[in-house]
């Protein structure tokens, strides 16, 4: 049923460090690579080599410019995927029960054999975390790599979401937010992890670590170069005066 569980035993989710992310899109590619050939329908592309290529992605990286009152603008890369909300509006709107939130770990999933492709869950999500696949016509979303994290056929270090495993900058963390001493809970506490669109009332599980305060450039600028005077001696002086006369 699409009733949300009152409380989940664990709250698995991601912490994304906006201070560290370099915007390389490796998480986007590894996500597509893993999820197109594992859980559920593949993530299709349409017109991949044509005029207007488009495709299904479960994770996308935006880039924002933030202009503080004083000092230079900052460029912040912003990876965005499902936030596995505690009050997930995408789950309750689903007419068929295809969308659900797991009681054991809080992961929001789609049972693709029940999905009628009405798209209402994507309308209900404020974050744009759900995309209807253009070929399969079912709703696709981040599964938190549910087929990796419990997969005993994989080496232990690979039992985390593909995006976290691949991030070359170490900007992504995976863990249990229900455990106050987990890596993600401590990072959120220590770095003031932020919740996206809190006014939407979705209570997202994933948190974003804001960029640390930047160093300020010294007030004194690089000293101006001495201006070249007219009293230059020798050949250069003659050349300067000759060019002036032209």
């Amino acid at each position: 049923m699409t009733e949300l569980p009152g409380e989940t035993t664990r709250k698995l989710g991601l912490v994304i460090d906006l201070d560290t992310c370099v915007g390389c899109h490796a998480c986007v590619i590894s996500c597509k690579g893993w999820n197109t050939e594992n859980y559920g329908a593949p993530l299709s592309d349409q017109d991949a080599y044509g005029e207007e290529p488009t495709g299904t992605f479960l994770n996308r990286v935006h880039s924002y410019e933030v202009q503080p009152d004083i000092g230079p603008a900052q460029l912040i890369h912003f990876p965005k995927s499902c936030l596995h909300c505690e009050d997930a509006p995408c789950v309750t709107v689903c007419p068929t029960g295809a969308s659900y939130k797991r009681v054991e770990d809080g992961i929001v999933l789609v049972n693709e054999t029940d999905c009628i492709g009405c798209g209402l869950c994507a309308w209900a999500c404020p974050y744009g975390a759900r995309e209807m696949d253009g070929a399969e016509k079912v709703m696709k979303k981040c599964t938190l790599c549910v087929d990796r994290i419990y997969n005993e056929n994989l080496p232990e270090e690979d039992r985390e979401p593909a995006c976290v495993r691949t991030c070359p900058a170490g900007a992504r963390y995976f863990g249990d937010f229900a455990d106050p001493e987990s890596n993600v809970s401590r990072l959120t506490r220590e770095r003031g992890g932020i919740e996206l669109m809190p006014e939407q009332g979705t209570r997202p599980v994933n948190r974003y670590l804001p960029p640390r305060a930047k160093d300020r450039m010294a007030e004194t600028q690089t000293p101006q170069l001495e201006s070249v005077g007219a009293d230059l001696p020798g050949f250069l002086g003659w050349l300067d005066r000759a060019l002036d006369r032209l």
């Binding site: 992605f57 933030v66 932020i194």
Partner: peptide, 20 residues
């Protein structure tokens, strides 16, 4: 969540084409 730092502007979308 970046409003604390300053004025936020979309600098670059995730891709040059459209999506769902």
């Amino acid at each position: 969540g970046l409003g604390e730092i300053g004025t936020v502007r979309s600098f670059e979308p995730p891709h040059t084409g459209g999506n769902y």
